[in-house]
Simulated assay, not measured.
Amino acid sequence: MSNEAVDWAMDHAPMLRTEKGKPDTTARHVLQVLAEHASPTGANAHPSVLRIQYRTGYDRATIQRALRRLEKAQLIVKDGAREGRTRYKLAMELRRPTSDWSDLEREEDGLRAAAAERKRRSRSKTVTHAESVTVTHGESVTADVTHAESVRHALKVRPSRTERSPNHQQPSDNQLHKDSSSRPAGEDEPAEDLHLAAFGAFWINYPRKRNREEAKQAWIAAIRRGIDPQHMVDSAQRYARERAGEDAQFTKYPATWLNKGCYDDEPDPQPEPNGRPQLKAVSGGWRPFQNPENHDVYDEPLI
C-alpha cells in the first residue's frame, strides 16, 4: 500500500459530482481502494473487482459503473493487464480546487447560523417576564433599577432584536441601550429589553464572565421569581470585592451564582489589620486572652 497514493485519493483528488450536484461518494470510495493497491507514483493498481466488492460492500455492477465514471473524468487510466485483471494508473497530478474547502466552511457557517436562529426563536416563545420591574438607564456602568406598584408593563413576549439579523452574534449591551434610547417618546420599553439592560449592569460587575447565555436565562428566571434586579447587581458588586485577589477558579460561574440564590448570602466578615477576623466575646463562651493589669496574680501559689 502506498501512503502517497492513498493521501491523494482521500484529500487531493478532484471530487466527482452526481447529476444532482452531490459528491459522488461511490466513485470516491472505489478510487481509494485502487490507491491502496497502487505504487507511490499511482501506477500498477490492479485489484480484482471481487477485492473491491469485499472492501467497499458494493455490488459488481455498481463498481463497474464507478470505474467508468473515474475513467471518464480521467482520474484513472487503463495501463494494460496483469494476471487477468485490468491495471490502472492514477492521475495523481490532478488536484481538487482550494475553493472546495471554503465552500464547505460557508455551508457549515450557514447551518450553525440557522440552528442558532431556531434556538433563539424557541427561547423567545417560552420566556415570560415579571410585571413589577421597571428600569431607568443612567450614564454610570450600573443601571438604575426602581420598582413601583403603579407601573406595569404588558407581559407580551416580543421577538428578540437578534432575530432581525442573520448574524448569529448577540448585540452588545451598549447597542441595546442605544436602540432603546431611540424609541419614540411616550412608548413603553418592552419588558424583555428592560431585563436585558439590567442584566448588562450585572454582567459588567460580576467578577467571572463565563457562559453569558446561561447567565442571561438564570437572570430572567430570578426576575420571574420576583428578585429585585438592583439587589442582584449590588450583590454582584459585593461578591466582586470579596473575590478580588483570590484564585479565579474558585469563583462561581454567574449562572450558578444566580440559580443558587447567592445574591442573598451574608457578606463575609471583614478582617482586622492583622489579617484575622474580629472575634466578639460572648457571655458564658470563649473570650480572647486579656493581659491582667495586676501582674501579682502570676506570683500566687498554685492550688
Rank of each mutant, 00 (worst) to 15 (best):
E4C: 04
D7N: 10
L31Y: 00
L31G: 00
L31C: 00
V33G: 01
A38Q: 01
R51V: 05
R55P: 00
R68S: 14
Q74L: 09
D79E: 10
G80P: 04
R82C: 11
L90P: 12
E93G: 12
E93L: 09
R95M: 15
T98V: 15
S102E: 13
E107S: 11
E107H: 12
A115C: 02
S122V: 02
K125L: 10
T128I: 09
T128P: 01
V133R: 08
V133S: 12
T136G: 10
G138S: 15
V141A: 12
T142F: 07
D144I: 10
V145F: 01
E149T: 07
S150N: 08
V151P: 03
H153L: 09
R158M: 07
R164Q: 13
R164N: 08
N174H: 07
L176A: 04
S180R: 14
A185E: 13
L194R: 14
F202Q: 05
I204Y: 09
N205R: 15
Y206T: 02
R210T: 14
A215P: 01
Q217A: 12
A218W: 06
A221T: 14
A221S: 11
R225V: 03
G226P: 00
D228H: 10
V233Q: 15
S235F: 01
A236Q: 08
R238S: 11
R241E: 07
G245D: 02
E246D: 07
K252E: 15
W257S: 08
P267S: 13
P273G: 03
P273E: 14
R276I: 05
Q278I: 06
K280D: 02
G285L: 10
R287D: 03
F289L: 06
N294S: 03
I303Q: 08
